[in-house]
Computed example of a mutant assay.
Amino acid sequence: MGRLTNFFRDVAREMKKVSWPKRQELTRYTITVVTTVLFVAVFFWVIDLGISELIRALIN
């Protein structure tokens, strides 16, 4: 049980050393991530649609 207590004490000590982002930075990073994910999702959706249509055209 002592090892578990020491582990959580060490975790708490290390978390105090972390440089947390400010609210403005966090908002900017979040917008960047969401925009990138949406772009990649749309990109692969268009590629998938194109490949599907190409295969459909080859089969018919």
Rank of each mutant, 00 (worst) to 15 (best):
F7S: 06
F8W: 15
R9N: 10
R9H: 13
D10V: 04
V11F: 07
V11T: 09
V11G: 00
A12C: 14
A12Q: 13
A12N: 09
R13H: 10
R13D: 04
R13Y: 10
R13I: 07
R13E: 13
E14N: 14
M15C: 13
M15R: 13
K16E: 15
K16A: 09
K17H: 03
V18Y: 04
V18C: 04
V18S: 01
V18T: 06
S19K: 15
S19E: 03
S19A: 07
S19V: 15
S19W: 05
S19H: 09
S19D: 14
P21Y: 04
P21N: 02
P21I: 00
K22Y: 11
R23A: 13
R23V: 12
R23K: 13
R23W: 11
Q24F: 13
Q24G: 08
E25P: 03
E25C: 02
L26R: 11
L26M: 14
L26P: 02
T27H: 10
T27Q: 07
T27P: 02
T27W: 12
R28Q: 11
R28N: 12
Y29S: 06
Y29L: 15
T30G: 01
T30R: 06
I31Y: 11
T32G: 12
T32W: 12
V33H: 05
V33Y: 07
V34W: 02
T35S: 01
T35C: 08
T35D: 03
T36M: 11
T36L: 14
T36K: 11
V37K: 02
L38S: 07
L38A: 14
F39E: 01
F39K: 02
F39C: 03
